[in-house]
Simulated assay, not measured.
Amino acid sequence: MLNYRQLHYFWVVAKTGSIVRASEQLNLTAQTISGQITLLEHTYGMDLFRRVGRQLELTEAGRLALPYAEQMFQLGDELEALLRAQPNEQQMLLRIGVADVVPKSIVYRLIAPTMELAEPVRISCREDKLERLLADLAIQRLDLVISDSPMPSHLDIKGFSQKLGECGISFFATQALAQRYGNDFPYSMNGAPLLVPGQETVVRSRLTRWFSELKIQPRIVGEFDDSALMKAFGQSGSGIFIAPSVIAEEVQAQYGVQLIGQTDAVSESFYAISVERKVKHPGIVAITESARRELFTRAD
């Protein structure tokens, strides 16, 4: 059986970078920590660290073990905080996974209604690739996953997708670019410098198909998995960029850019994926109801 104390010593050494710093943090002697890690290595017949000069570096086995240890002790901290809470201070925990392609402004607007519930809710929010989030949803490490696509059919994971809503997309640019390419939209986009979402996003393929149907060929100067980074490049004048029309006013105010066009022919959809067909968690109910009632202009 795995010795969790030994694993904890390994984790602290890996995070601090040395046995000396780990001993200071744990208030233990360096010999104790070194000995316990050696026992852990002997148990599984592999080295977790190698010494390079005066520094310790993780071996391949150590690099594989570290993220698992990270998750285990993070969950342990959450459990301890929950158990230590006084009865009148206890909060419902809502663990949300967010696909990294979903714009942060949309995520905030979706989750914000949970902060207004009569019963306090503590949110744990994690961003990652969709398939990794769905794997954690399957083993109940997450209560909900927010994505720009429903549950993929090729995954052997039990889950149910609720469409929160959809909206068209808007195109934004600095004043200089807007003056040059803002007239006769969308045909003025032919040859225009364009910043686009990464290949993994659903909207990317829809956008490409729309341009092709209109025989428009913008000049793609950058593609981004992170929508916030794409907006930052757009703010600098590197190119025209897109965002869901539902947050158009917010994008203009936050990034100081101008709206040069909008289309409903290309839409972005957002989904809540859970393991329950009929959700019961008040936080998830608040997210789904508020999205359909207030956030999106068109929802199924």
Score class of each variant (00 low, 15 high):
S23E: 01
T16K: 00
S188R: 06
S18N: 00
G35E: 04
V121A: 08
G165M: 01
V202I: 04
D300C: 05
E166W: 07
K280N: 12
T174M: 06
L56C: 10
T38G: 12
E116H: 15
L164V: 04
M230N: 08
Q162K: 07
E80M: 12
E289V: 15
E24T: 08
D300T: 13
L83A: 15
E200T: 08
I123P: 10
Q258K: 03
A265C: 09
I19F: 03
E127V: 13
F224V: 14
S236G: 06
V285W: 06
A178C: 10
Q31P: 01
E116Q: 09
L75A: 07
P186G: 11
A85F: 15
E250F: 00
A81F: 12
R141D: 06
L82C: 14
S147K: 02
Y9I: 12
A248K: 05
L83T: 12
S245W: 01
Y108K: 02
V107R: 07
T32H: 09
E89V: 15
T32M: 09
A243C: 00
P120F: 12
E276V: 07
L48C: 04
L130R: 00
V145H: 01
K163L: 05
T29E: 06
R5G: 14
V20T: 11
T59E: 13
T297F: 13
E250V: 06
Q25A: 06
L144M: 03
I273S: 07
Y255K: 00
S245M: 02
R21G: 02
T32K: 00
A291C: 14
I242D: 03
F224T: 07
S267L: 13
G222K: 03
I284N: 05
V285G: 08
R126W: 10
D225P: 05
Q86Y: 10
E60V: 12
P152M: 15
G97E: 12
L137E: 05
M230Y: 01
I19Q: 04
M46P: 12
F296I: 01
P197E: 04
A228P: 03
G191F: 00
V20F: 04
L83D: 07
L75Q: 09
D143I: 11
R180E: 14
G182N: 04
T201Q: 05
R5D: 06
L144R: 05
D264G: 10
R204F: 15
M115R: 02
L229A: 08
T288Y: 07
I240D: 04
K158Q: 11
G222A: 10
P282T: 09
S236T: 07
V20Y: 13
A286L: 08
V266Q: 01
Q90Y: 10
E213R: 14
M230S: 04
E119D: 09
S205R: 10
T201N: 01
Q254I: 05
S238Y: 08
E294S: 13
Q162F: 08
S170L: 03
F172I: 05
T174N: 02
Q71H: 10
D47C: 12
S238Q: 15
M230H: 11
S124C: 10
I96C: 00
T43W: 07
V203F: 04
G239F: 00
S269N: 09
S269K: 12
Y181A: 02
D184H: 03
L133M: 01
P87H: 13
L295Q: 05
L93Q: 14
A65M: 05
L48G: 10
F241S: 04
A61Q: 11
E24I: 04
